[in-house]
Design a protein around this nucleic acid. Structure first.
Lengths: 230, 230
DNA sequence: ACAAAAAAGAGAGCAGTGCTCTTGCATGGG
DNA sequence: CCCATGCAAGAGCACTGCTCTCTTTTTTGT
């Protein structure tokens, strides 16, 4: 068993953390593709083969960083959520938090929401932390729904089954119209953030912050959240 | 001068094309990060150093592929544009073409709209081909605008200057409200496509095609295009 | 037409990468 | 106490991008 009370076990935890820290530094500085196991080991004063005792491959190290990144983003978003009062303000705050986190951690954002590293497929371990922001957005819609109801325009007939399936999966207490709008807004949010972060707005949008605020407000209204609601 | 009528000049063109073709094959098969100059050369029966006579670095080869990818995507979108009649149908068709092209060329899509390859910044050469889809969307809005006018809700006061600047840059004949909505819709479109392509919709959206159609319709209405308009 | 210049290919070599295997040492549990 | 396990170290393999030199081939200027 890996009971955690040996001096050895403690050392293992510390070394593992040190590796992740150094890897995160390199990730932030150079990006995922330039993250090198050998460089991490070198910086930590250990030989590269020793590092494989802690992470069996580069992909495993990346996976650990991905999970941490999702959690860090989720924390930022949840903090912004709790700091705001009404649903509309919360929506804007969460969107702004996602954007702010992305601008602060561009390479980590690229790691989780950019192109997946080729040949690499994230294991299921990453699913729960990846869902945190989505769950937050759903929660906001739920609060608003309980407050006053969110009337969304009816869905086209051919999308109803899918919409009902998604609603059953994600938020059985919300109408399918709202859930569909939520999923779309969720993806679109990351379109806005990604375009700004990856330079697609260069020479196009200057006032990034103001533009984003406005677009996030439009997204909110798209899921039925209105500025003045409870 | 590099007057183009020598046997050598012709050979150069052919070899350059062969390199790009093989590189594209590897890109499609394995992704940008696994694209290897040596492997391309090996496959072409030449030694790796010879390849540097054609592309001075791996990044230059990638840039060539990026430009080709933008052009290929632009062509698909333009074909879809011409095959449709009214502005709303054109909008949906162009969005669907973008999605279809992305699904057919996932690694090339990742190359141009995913995380930029770290340490790499695209040169200005890529700007015009990158703008093709955007220009198409602007054109659709312009057609609809001439037809009947697109009344968009008024912008918040603090965004007016930026919106007017964007309109002056991108489409001086369109109202700032429409241009702002267009830019947002443009980014959001790629959010939808990227989420589907990069697996974020796994276990969430099943009927990807239907969901996308609906979301694209919402985007259209967001810029003021209505299903029944001229 | 012929020599000089430019362009292209071939090969060796450098520094770096992920990863594996073997060897030696220290530590913790029975 | 002692042996099995955990860990570190080093050598080594196959690969990468890229540079440099040397030779051959083609183009161009006189």
């Amino acid at each position: 068993m890996s009971t955690a009370h040996g001096a050895r076990a403690r050392a293992r935890i510390e070394v593992t953390a040190a590796i992740k820290d150094e890897a995160r530094r390199q990730l932030a500085a150079e990006g995922a593709a330039r993250l090198s196991l050998r460089a991490v080991a070198r910086e930590l004063g250990m030989v590269s083969s020793a590092l494989y005792r802690y992470f069996p491959s580069r992909d495993d190290l990346l996976t650990a960083l991905i999970i941490d990144a999702y959690d860090s983003l989720g924390e930022s978003a949840e903090a912004a959520h709790q700091a705001s009062a009404d649903p509309y303000a919360r929506w804007i705050a969460v969107c702004a938090a996602v954007r702010g986190w992305a601008l602060d951690h561009p390479h980590e954002y690229a790691l989780i929401y950019g192109s997946p590293v080729p040949g690499y497929t994230a294991p299921d371990t990453t699913v729960p932390p990846a869902a945190r922001v989505g769950l937050l957005l759903i929660g906001i819609a739920r609060d608003a729904h309980e407050g006053q109801g969110l009337d969304r325009p009816a869905l086209p007939a051919d999308l109803r089954p899918e919409a009902e399936r998604m609603a059953a999966d994600l938020a059985p207490d919300l109408p399918p119209e709202t859930v569909t709008a939520l999923v779309a807004a969720w993806a679109q949010l990351y379109g806005l953030v990604g375009f700004e972060l990856f330079g697609q707005f260069n020479r196009v949008v200057e006032d990034r912050e103001g533009f984003f605020r406005h677009a996030a407000g439009q997204l909110a209204e798209g899921v039925g959240l209105m500025p003045g609601s409870v």
